[in-house]
Amino acid sequence: MIRLAAVLAAFILLVLPAEAHRLKLFVQAAGGAITGYGFYIGGGRPEGVELVITTPDGKEVRRLRTGSDGDFSFTPPVPGRYHLALASGDGHFAEVDVSTDGGPTTAVPAGKTAQAPLPAPTDLDARIATAVDAAVARQIRPLLEAYDAADGRVRFNDLLGGLGWIVGIAGLWAWFRSRRSGHGN
């Protein structure tokens, strides 16, 4: 048993650098367009995978395929909230709600989404606002990407916590059985 435990420990250390495995969708809305990419948390991008874009009430807007880097871009006909679903074809799914007047979000009040996609170039204030929006979107993109990559990653502490749970459940089960069959004392 001890040797087996040693092999198990070696196995854990061996695979430690690898990370969890889950399909995720990074999406950013800027300038009325929706751009982003799908990625596996363990590394790798889903290539040529179908992305289905629907409105919040489930009406299909568009179907497209991701490029070689898992990337896609899409300009919705009217600004508003959209639901993006990615199915990688091997049983992985990712979905995200996005609103074209802000970052990827699920909780935007419905009344706030009615912003014009690109204001008329005659209005200086609106042009500045558009330029600032684009610059901010460009600047915070790496931040959002890092956040999405970190979210859902398997952390060493969580793995150890899970092992602790398994040991605890086994102990509880043994204790329960020992009480029931009466040879605990």
Partner: peptide, 19 residues
Amino acid sequence: AAVFFIASSQAFSLGPTSV
């Protein structure tokens, strides 16, 4: 259970996908 939990939590890249 521990072996399954650890092994299937750790993915590695394999070509275009990860397993």
